[in-house]
Design a binder for these strands. Structure first.
Length: 278
DNA sequence: TCTCAGGGGCGAT
DNA sequence: ATCGCCCCTGAG
């Protein structure tokens, strides 16, 4: 295991909080499955110990995934514009954003539509079991997330075994689209709005899921995905009109948080969900 | 522009 | 055992 000094990083909130559905906490260690690595992380005070599998010691991978280049204190300072954020960040500090692989985020957030975190996690594990490469990690074995090409060719009735229900056809259709269009190779170069336009063309991707992919898979920091909870926050705490259209609400938030709407959204989201205030 | 079906799980009855 | 409810997209 490699040692890394990493204070101000709440592993539990960040890894198990609904950004990614592929992490588990087992016997004091976090195990995360991605499309090409399993990451193991153990916290010890202000340090963490980490390892990657099957390729060992892949710091570059961990650095990008955990966004170690981000200056947390600086971000926090910038978004602390009102009492709601200050309260949220005081109660649940050190929530960080991950940068997952684009295809990984896209396919798991398609599963997330009209679905609960619990079910999403189950489905993701089931798909990994069926289609993902097996990787040995100490005594345990994990299955990586499925390659897009494999999902594109998988029979619908097999995908359905993972309990994704009506989303199975979206998964397959989008996987085929990605292989055909080569979008994964191009979308990283696009700006936020161009990428969003491309994303909502995909089956099973609407405004909210497009925004989840922009934030969690492409590291666009100025986007808050507006699910029912986030909408509640901005209607009830920030006084936005409940009838406001998704796009108008998004623009308001983007404008208000000046470049860091995604970070603000994470704090507010965890706060109201855990405190059950709305 | 609005309404509603749709899969699965959970908590309440 | 059954019911209502939650969750977002696509189709009508």
């Amino acid at each position: 295991m490699n040692k890394l000094y990493l204070p101000n990083f709440d592993l539990q909130m960040t890894l198990l909080g609904g950004q990614s559905f592929a992490w588990d906490f087992i016997d004091g260690a976090y195990y995360g499955v991605t499309r090409d690595r399993v990451i193991k992380i153990v916290r010890d005070g202000e340090n963490i110990y980490w390892q990657t599998f099957p390729k060992k010691d892949d710091f570059e991978f961990v650095e990008k995934y955990l966004r170690l280049d981000v200056d947390y204190e600086k971000v926090l300072k910038k978004i602390s514009k009102d009492e709601h954020i200050k309260k949220a960040a005081a109660k649940y500090p050190n929530i960080r954003l991950l940068e997952q692989d684009f295809e990984e985020a896209l396919l798991s957030f398609i599963i997330s539509s009209n679905n609960t975190i619990r079910s999403i996690r189950k489905s993701v594990r089931s798909l990994n079991q069926m289609y993902g490469e097996k990787v040995e990690v100490g005594g345990n074995s994990f299955h990586l997330l499925p390659k897009t090409e494999i999902l594109a060719e998988a029979p619908l009735e097999d995908i359905l075994k993972s309990k994704v229900g009506f989303r199975a056809k979206y998964l397959k259709d989008t996987a085929q689209n990605l292989v055909r269009s080569g979008l994964p190779g191009k979308i990283k170069e696009m700006d936020e709005n161009e990428a969003r336009r491309k994303l909502v063309e995909l089956k099973g991707v609407g405004d909210k899921i497009a925004d989840c992919v922009l934030v969690f898979g492409l590291a666009h920091d100025n986007v808050t995905p507006l699910d029912v909870w986030a909408k509640r926050v901005f209607i009830n705490l920030y006084g936005l009109d409940p009838k406001m259209k998704y796009d108008d609400m998004r623009k308001w938030i983007k404008n208000y948080f000046e470049g860091h709407a995604a970070w603000a959204g994470q704090f507010l989201f965890e706060y109201i969900r855990n405190e059950k205030i709305l």
